[in-house]
């Protein structure tokens, strides 16, 4: 049988009718395209399927056999856990060292499965724990620790005209030196949930449609997932070279400010943010060196999403002449 093309796939999940979607997702699963990866998704719980489709309904799927990169199944490990006290267990092709969660928050299990497979299995792309967005030939990497607000900032920018590559995993093609979009559910936690709802509502009357229900009681508190903007899903194959690295620091008590940093600091922040730098080795070093050479770098300290977006756009506007790129030190 022919193997389906992994590019320019026009089959979107939403084109299948509800019963067909339900049957496939709960049966053998659906092989779909998420950024550069093909992944088979199987979900045994109806509520998780509904939440999943809220986020991924516009993603392409394959109707023909495809060589899969990943596989994720969410199910109850026995009849008791499937129906009586349902518990969502996630199985991937890696060691599944995950704790089952109550099925009502099974979407969290599914997203953890996505993250786990990429974090553990991706060796062909250099990976950064970073929010990544792009616009008009500008590729912006925002490496940061969890809790720094990078997901909120990446999502905030994406709902103001930027292409969302990822709120969590920046991927770099080592040969081309290009950032590869990997748009998925944006993971919002606790206070960032109302912030993003208000932010999206400014542009979209149907803003609730972009969000899953909130899932309280997870190990990270309350989590809610946000669908990437439609344009970011449409542009899932549009790559950009990186030329800005901004380190975001959320501090609700601070004055908004742009703080210069050295390129050496930016270099090591990218190294520290990369989960597979050690596995890739020399090519990872050379790639990060090239990114930093060709990028403008800074740190922003911000007390709110509005100010963060203003600071990012101000810094980029100041340095947006491509002829200047990489010529300044911070």
């Amino acid at each position: 049988m022919p193997v389906a093309s992994r590019f320019h796939n026009e089959n979107k999940l939403v084109k299948l009718n509800d019963s067909e979607l339900d049957k496939r997702l709960s049966g053998d699963g659906i092989a779909m395209e998420v950024g550069p990866f093909s992944v088979n998704v199987l979900i045994k719980f109806k509520n998780v399927r509904e939440d999943f489709l809220k986020i991924y309904r516009d993603f392409p799927f394959y109707d023909e056999p495809i060589v899969l990169d990943h596989s994720i199944s969410v199910f109850g490990r026995n009849l008791f856990r499937q129906y009586l006290r349902p518990q969502a267990f996630v199985e991937t092709e890696m060691n599944n060292d995950t704790i089952p969660l109550p099925a009502k928050i099974g979407m969290v299990s599914l997203e953890m499965g996505f993250n786990w497979q990429v974090a553990m299995g991706c060796k062909q792309y250099l990976m950064f724990h970073a929010g990544v967005v792009a616009r008009d030939g500008i590729g912006l990497i925002m490496p940061a620790m969890s809790g720094s607000g990078k997901s909120t900032l990446a999502a905030g920018l994406s709902f103001r005209g930027w292409q969302l590559h990822s709120d969590e995993f920046g991927l770099l093609d080592l040969d081309a030196g290009e950032l590869i979009p990997y748009p998925r559910a944006v993971s919002l936690k606790n206070q960032s949930i109302p912030v993003m709802k208000e932010w999206v509502s400014r542009e979209h009357d149907n803003y609730e449609d972009y969000f899953t229900p909130a899932y309280p009681g997870t190990p990270k508190g309350t989590i809610c997932y946000l669908r990437p903007p439609d344009q970011s899903i449409e542009e899932m194959h549009k790559r950009t070279k990186p030329n800005f690295v901004i380190l975001p620091i959320f501090d609700p008590n601070s004055e908004p400010k742009i703080r210069p940093i050295t390129k050496t600091m930016a270099f090591f922040r990218l190294v520290a943010s990369s989960a597979n730098y050690g596995d890739i080795g020399e090519r990872a070093f050379s790639s990060i060196a090239k990114i930093i050479e060709e990028s403008f770098v800074c740190e922003i300290i911000y007390p709110s999403l509005d100010t963060a977006v203003e600071l990012v756009e101000a810094f980029i506007a100041e340095h947006s002449d491509p002829k200047k790129a990489g010529q300044d030190d911070g």
């Binding site: 050295t262 390129k263 050496t264 270099f267 050690g278 080795g281 020399e282 070093f285 050379s286 060196a289 930093i292 050479e293 030190d329």
Partner: peptide, 18 residues
């Protein structure tokens, strides 16, 4: 060794140790 330099620092990558 692989080298890159920025400002007043020199960054070295040692493939033997990673």
């Amino acid at each position: 060794f692989l080298w890159t330099s920025f400002e007043d620092s020199n960054i070295l990558y040692d493939p033997a140790s990673g």
